[in-house]
Design a binder for these strands. Structure first.
Length: 734
DNA sequence: AGCACGCCGACT
DNA sequence: GTCGGCGTGCTC
């Protein structure tokens, strides 16, 4: 391959301006020491490994590759693999012959590796600047980001943007403290309530890559148990990482770890910390001075050294899904890490997602569950009542409280605080059978039906219309569009119980805790405060609203929110009672009564397998202007057996604003001022786009992602048509 | 994405 | 004869 220039008759004595073109050859002939190659500025090159392979941080997908740059001698020691650099990139840079030309902009990037020679035949440009000598992009982190980019058909640069926090010079200048020695192996504590618990801790402490799906008992012990699992991993000499859905829960685990290990062995990584503090803590992890991390979503990439355990708490919470491209989910990122870094895996939850159930079903992870009698003792007594039953008391009736709910609250208030869960205003449940409330689904692809006009139903997946809908469950033919004003109910509760203090916790002010005194605590799902000593009773109002959500996961989600709230109520053995106002025959309601999230998830998984729903099948959503979506589909080489559902018309996404549904938790505060990487064309509000869903069999997910990435890249290179959004595992396809 | 180069029409 | 359209392709 060195022959090309020789055959072309390259001049034997290159002019000064042309020397750069010959770096490759000169480097190879290291025995000719007199003519040390020089950059065009006259600076000598590094003696060892004078070529740096650089990953450019921003830019379009087709720049998703490494570029070779020359390393000037004066940057040699600082230009280590993993450091942030600035390089000149773009047309014009190569114009060494035409004099002073310095075209092309300066781009930020990372040195991925240093090598002796380059395969690139043109002249190498020199690295313009080493921004910082801190090697932030370690090989492990790079490998993880690559895997995430592949999995989500996204670019490495986009993933790096999520994984590496912005630099802060002040934080970098500070020294990180020296690492503490591994702590002693912790006692199992309340883990003994789970038959397999002590063995799991033992495996962690031994250094095994144990994998478990943990259904935590209701009550206040889980943060301590999670902390114990982390401590056991540290005892093995390895690091640990736990990702929680919000700052509140992360802080609880952090506090439990501090109690267990003292300060210095772990750190809390939260988005809401300032940029300097965030980077300071991240650096402490990257430098190996802290071996355990507890944090929210962004912490999923934390560069923990010698990772021994990845844990996720409550993987069904929507905040585990990163809103920035390529929208990775913390559970999947941690799964990738467990495999790549040979770490143990723990998915803990009061409930269970179908994804977690699949890990158990596959045999990839073992279930970590308590025996029935433990569950029964720890969980409150659950009663259900359908919403047609109305209380006799006029005040209770005004608050639309069924009599059992009213009695339960009244009795509970004698013993302490009571919790009332009220669905958030703005939930817009989808069409459901009037008789049995089963969501209306398409006869062809089982997608959700929407009312296009007074008497036409349209499938929002495949676009087919349904003329004569009948309920697959009960044969009913009438639908109801469910609308609710739940807020009013909460206000009226105060009037139903005069003289009792009413506290509210919701989107605007979320209460962390409430004292043990009798009070009505009205909270929206996910915002329930923890009561000192537990709530005496709980009422879960308007269950049908949660169940009727326009979402594939409506049942799973309703159960999750009920279990989360009910777990704050005192256990059966302490007289705790919860009333759920929902149709008693429905599956999630039954699962709540039996406190059986695992059984519910297993059945749900079986059903999804039958209907071809994720996560059993893998799906990708392709959204954009109709011609652009068509264009992408034409170039796409799909894996065999891919089903194409649609296209359907959907409202265009406004740039910079993620479409969020009422009922989702508030978006986590974005620290660091980083903007979502969005190269999507502007869409005016009211525009419509086309959306196609691609569905593949289990096992073809990677092939689908690869095909989409290839097609996207090809279109970008050729600049064909408008940008198209590709989303793997869309969580909100209704 | 920028920014060159390149191969065709209307101007001094 | 030259200036300049933006089609095509490269950027280390």
């Amino acid at each position: 391959m060195s022959g090309e220039n020789e055959q072309d008759g390259a001049p034997a004595e290159p002019s000064a301006g042309e020397q750069l073109a010959l770096i490759r050859e000169t480097v190879r002939r290291t025995k000719a020491p007199k003519a040390r190659p020089r950059t065009w500025r006259g600076a000598p090159l590094a003696e060892n490994l004078p070529v740096a392979r650089v990953l450019v941080d921003k830019g379009p997908v087709h720049l998703d590759q490494l570029w070779d740059y020359a390393v000037p001698a004066e940057l040699d020691t600082r230009a280590r693999p993993g450091v942030r650099v600035r390089v000149r990139f773009g047309a014009g840079t190569g114009q060494v012959h035409s004099g002073r030309r310095e075209g092309g902009g300066l781009l930020d990037g990372y040195i991925v590796e240093r090598v002796a020679t380059s395969d690139y035949t043109g002249p190498l440009a020199a690295i313009a600047q080493v921004l910082s000598p801190e090697p932030v992009l370690t090989p492990a982190l790079l490998g993880l980001c690559r895997a995430v980019a592949d999995r989500y058909a996204g670019s490495l640069a986009d993933v790096l943007q999520l994984a590496v926090p912005p630099r802060n010079a002040g934080a970098e200048a500070e020294a990180s403290p020296p690492p503490l020695p591994p702590p002693p192996r912790p006692r199992p504590g309340s883990w003994t309530r789970y038959p397999a618990g002590p063995a799991f801790l033992g495996a962690l402490a031994r250094g095994d890559a144990a994998r478990a799906v943990w259904t935590a008992l209701p009550g206040p012990h889980w943060p301590g148990e999670l902390a114990t699992a982390i401590a056991a991993t540290l005892a093995s000499g390895r690091g640990a990482l736990a990702v929680l859905p919000d700052g509140r829960s992360a802080a609880r685990v952090d506090a439990a770890l501090t109690e267990l290990l003292g300060e210095g062995r772990h750190t809390l990584l939260l988005a809401e910390a300032g940029p300097r503090e965030r980077y300071r803590r991240w650096l402490a992890v990257s430098r190996g001075s802290v071996r355990a991390v507890v944090g929210t979503r962004a912490a999923m990439f934390a560069p923990v050294r010698d990772l021994g355990l990845v844990a996720i708490w409550d993987d069904g919470d929507t905040s585990h899904s990163d809103p920035n491209a390529p929208r990775p989910h913390a559970r999947d990122v941690l799964l990738l890490r467990a495999v790549q870094e040979r770490a143990a895996f723990l998915a803990g939850d009061l409930s269970r997602t179908v994804e977690a159930a699949q890990l158990v079903e596959n045999g990839w992870a073992l279930p970590l569950e308590a025996p029935r009698d433990q569950v029964r003792a720890a969980a409150p007594r659950i009663r259900t009542v359908s919403d047609t039953d109305q209380a006799r008391d006029p005040a209770a009736r005004a608050a639309r409280l069924p009599s059992i709910a009213w009695q339960t609250l009244r009795d509970g208030l004698r013993q302490g605080p009571v919790l009332v869960q009220v669905p958030r205003r703005g939930y817009v449940p989808r069409l459901a059978c009037e008789r049995c409330r089963e969501p209306a689904r398409c006869a062809h692809c089982a997608g959700p039906l929407e009312a296009t006009d007074a008497d036409t139903l349209t499938c929002s997946w495949c676009g087919r219309t349904e003329e004569n809908w009948t309920c697959a469950e009960c044969g009913g033919t009438r639908l109801r569009a469910q609308v609710v004003g739940a807020r009013r109910t909460a206000e009226e509760l105060g009037r139903a119980f005069p003289g009792v203090p009413v506290r509210t916790s919701g989107r605007d002010h979320v209460l962390d805790t409430v004292p043990a005194e009798p009070a009505l605590v009205v909270a929206t799902p996910g915002a329930e405060p923890v009561a000192a000593g537990g709530y005496a009773a709980g009422v879960l109002l308007d269950g049908w609203v949660l169940l009727g959500r326009p979402d594939l996961r409506a049942g799973e989600e309703a159960l999750r929110r009920w279990l989360d709230a009910a777990a704050l109520v005192r256990g059966h053995d302490e007289g705790g009672t919860v009333v759920v106002v929902a149709e008693p025959t429905l599956r999630p309601v039954q699962a709540l009564m039996r406190w059986d999230p695992a059984g519910h998830a297993a059945r749900e998984l079986g059903e999804r397998a039958q209907l071809g729903f994720p996560p059993v099948s893998r799906m990708a959503a392709v959204t954009g202007p109709a011609e652009a979506v068509d264009g992408l589909l034409e170039t796409l080489e799909l894996p065999a057996g891919t089903e194409i559902l649609g296209p359907v018309t959907v409202p265009a996404d406004e740039p910079g604003t993620r479409q969020r549904r009422a009922g989702d938790p508030a978006p986590a505060a974005r620290g660091g001022g980083r903007q979502p990487a969005r190269r999507t064309r502007e869409a005016a509000p009211g525009d419509t786009w086309a959306r196609v869903l691609l569905r593949v069999r289990p096992g073809s997910g990677a092939a689908l992602a690869a095909a989409l990435k290839t097609a996207q890249a090809a279109r970008l290179v050729k600049r064909e048509g408008a940008a198209v959004q590709v989303r793997i595992d869309p969580p909100d396809i209704g």
